[in-house]
Design a protein around this nucleic acid. Structure first.
Lengths: 211, 211
DNA sequence: CATCGTCCTTGACCCAGATCAATCAATGCA
DNA sequence: TGCATTGATTGATCTGGGTCAAGGACGATG
């Protein structure tokens, strides 16, 4: 009924348009959802973290590319039996609904970011989101310095933010120059004053972008 | 248990952050979801059409502004009883899940549009989506001329597409000049060759933007 | 039918971010 | 130890779309 599959970092899990005869839950690793135009323009449209769900009941075709960003382990269920389970166990559908609503909110926050924020605000927003997520895991409060590792390349950041990698690099440098962040190497970021970073995001409150 | 509420065109149904002690289904009219930054930058993040659902089980705060674009009738349920219903009737949660997944797909298509498409491609995409939806209702095939009414101002188009209204106006004029569309007045659009319009959207296929 | 208000168009100019290109740093590998 | 390879930075220049501003079309209202 259920089985496990592993993917290496960089490997494509499903291509947009492919038939997807299973649904899955991410056990470990990070996968990203993206869409690509013929001429190569790419936009990341979502992130799958451990416990997130892949695939949809009632539709067989994948609507976007799913790529493993790190080594990924999936727990897969064949489509038929899973839909059976949904019918018999109301709790499953409810849980899935909750997760999907969260993703929808996150996607809608992202629409504002892509449509209306400046490059600097986009970078600050992304850093704030990642920092907040890492801090939540680390049970860290935001009062003092907080250091974390950027889990992605400049190119991946650009693909999320609707920018080019050069612009990402320039804006990261600018935030560093202005003292909003500090860098140790290229990936390790320190945030001396979290509220200062939040001021740069353009958001009116400290509330929530998810994922 | 359930009751009806009416809103005039232009009226705000809920403000972002307000408590929302009901969930509702749109009976009639069009409402739009939007987010606004302190300095006035606005991004539409979704559209509610008849049969669409407003609010979310398990969360009381509205995450964005909901505004009536036309006269709107809502069928409202108090939050408590509705959640009760969800627990007892698995079919309800499943149907909601399906609708939410559709909205999520639509939002993700929109991410690509906002992040990577040019102004011309954005306009063409929006026109194609509206035309397709109207054509579907009219049972029209795409072989011949198709005429429809634009249900929004240039400003609303700009708010959807992450553009300014001047750019929208210029690009609409350009598409007209190039023969991709024809205009009778400001709102009535004719598409002489649907595939020609699709070529302008930047999408690789004729498949699916939803909503 | 004049006047207002709303929506739209068009022009002139500007700038944020894209593009093109050179260089650098870190890592792996022979 | 030298040499690719990959990712990041930085500079020079270009351009799509934003901004500012001046009308135009058209319906509503007195």
């Amino acid at each position: 009924m259920k089985y496990y599959r592993e993917f290496e970092a960089g490997q494509t899990i499903v291509w947009s348009g492919d038939e997807l005869n299973f649904v899955a839950s991410v056990v470990d690793g990070i996968a990203s959802l993206s869409q690509t135009m013929e001429d190569g323009r790419r936009q990341m449209v979502g992130l799958l973290l451990p416990s997130d769900f892949l695939g949809r009941p009632g539709r067989a075709a994948a609507p976007y590319d799913v790529t493993a960003s790190t080594k990924v382990t999936l727990c897969c269920f064949r489509r038929g039996p899973f839909e059976e389970l949904m019918n018999t166990t109301p709790h499953v559908a409810q849980r899935l609904l909750e997760m999907t609503l969260d993703e929808l909110d996150a996607a809608r926050e992202w629409l504002l970011l892509l449509g209306r924020k400046t490059a600097r605000e986009k970078i600050a927003s992304l850093l704030a989101i990642i920092a907040r997520r890492k801090a939540a895991i680390a049970q860290h409060n935001h009062e003092t310095d907080f250091t974390f590792d950027l889990p992605m390349t400049r190119e991946a950041m650009a693909d999320y933010l609707g920018l080019t990698l050069e612009t990402v690099s320039r804006q990261v440098s600018a935030l560093k120059r202005d003292g909003v962040i500090k860098l140790q190497g290229k990936r390790e970021v320190t945030i001396p004053d979290f509220s200062r970073l939040l001021d740069e995001t353009g958001d009116d409150n400290d509330g929530g972008l998810l994922v």
